[in-house]
Simulated assay, not measured.
Amino acid sequence: MSEVATVPTTRDEDWRYADGDYLAAAGAEALARWRTIEVAPGETERNCEVRLSGPEASGFVDRLRVHVGKGGRYEHFATIAAGRYARIEIEVTLDEGAHFEFGGVTLGGGDKRQEFVTRTIHAAPNCTSNQVVRAVHWGRSVGNFLGRIEIPQHSQKVDAAQNFRAILLEKGASANAKPELEIFADDVKAAHGAAIGALDDRAAFYMASRGIPPEVARKLLVRAFVADAFDSVEDDATRDDLVERTLAQLDEAAV
């Protein structure tokens, strides 16, 4: 007998920062739907996306399961600048020697609520993962990152890292980070870091003292901040395109 799909609520830990109104109005089947990707042993697959939608759009939930074979590599780089509520959820299972690279940016104003949710299962020894998430928000918008790393007892020599930083351009905007590490192996490296604040006024002042107009200095600082999430994209043209398409959504921001 198949399980009946139910609508999650903000009482569920994995949905604690979600938009309750959006969840209540969404269909249970749509929220329970997962896409799948299989990366063959020794192969590399990369996905790059900038998720946009019109101002009247309610948003979306996109859930993805990825299995990376032995020695394989999966890279996912994404910007969320979509409607009222938007969530990209990625669950990755890594075989021996496999790697997961993730770079994400949430960006928006008004009352948008945007989030990345990742679960990285290091299912075998010598696998690695690295996740970099940046959030830029203004108005009353919210940027969230919930990242779970699982390392079972037999998965020795694992190296896993997460890094989340947020810039709030106006009072009223907010960001939330929930790193979660479940580690049962003893020969591993696992680290996470999070920081939330405003633009660096000292850096802006230094740039202004060198003749750079304040508005230009602030945009340069935001550009460098956003570009961190895409630093691991090897192809220069692809990386520059991701940065430019992301920054194009900053027109209404108080930069």
Rank of each mutant, 00 (worst) to 15 (best):
T9Q: 00
R11A: 07
E13K: 09
R16C: 02
Y17K: 01
Y17V: 04
A18V: 03
D19M: 09
G20P: 12
D21Q: 05
A25N: 13
A26G: 12
A28C: 02
E29N: 00
L31H: 10
R33S: 14
W34D: 00
T36H: 00
T36F: 00
V39A: 13
P41R: 07
P41D: 08
T44E: 06
N47C: 06
N47G: 13
E49G: 11
L52G: 05
P55F: 08
A57I: 09
S58R: 13
D62P: 01
L64M: 07
V66S: 11
V66C: 06
G72Y: 03
R73I: 02
F77H: 11
A78Y: 14
I80N: 09
A82H: 12
R84Q: 09
R84L: 05
R84Y: 02
R87V: 04
I88E: 10
E91V: 14
V92N: 09
T93I: 13
A98F: 02
F100Q: 10
E101C: 07
V105W: 15
G108Y: 11
G108D: 13
G110V: 02
D111T: 08
K112G: 02
K112W: 06
H122C: 04
A124I: 02
N126M: 10
N126Q: 07
C127S: 14
T128H: 10
S129H: 06
N130M: 11
N130E: 15
N130K: 10
V132C: 14
V133M: 04
V133S: 12
V133F: 06
R134F: 15
V136S: 11
H137Y: 02
H137A: 01
H137R: 15
H137C: 09
W138G: 12
R140G: 09
V142N: 15
N144R: 06
F145A: 05
I149R: 01
E150K: 10
Q153M: 00
Q156Y: 00
K157F: 07
V158T: 12
Q162R: 03
Q162S: 06
N163K: 12
A166E: 14
E170C: 05
G172V: 15
V188W: 02
A194T: 02
I196R: 14
G197K: 03
L199E: 09
R202S: 13
A203Q: 15
Y206K: 10
M207I: 04
S209N: 13
G211H: 12
V216C: 03
A217Q: 10
R218M: 04
R218N: 07
K219H: 12
L220A: 08
L221H: 06
V222H: 09
V222P: 01
V222G: 04
F225D: 09
D236A: 13
A237K: 13
R239P: 08
R239K: 15
D240A: 08
D241P: 03
L242H: 14
T246G: 11
T246I: 08
A248K: 14
Q249Y: 11
L250D: 01
L250S: 03
V255C: 11
V255I: 11
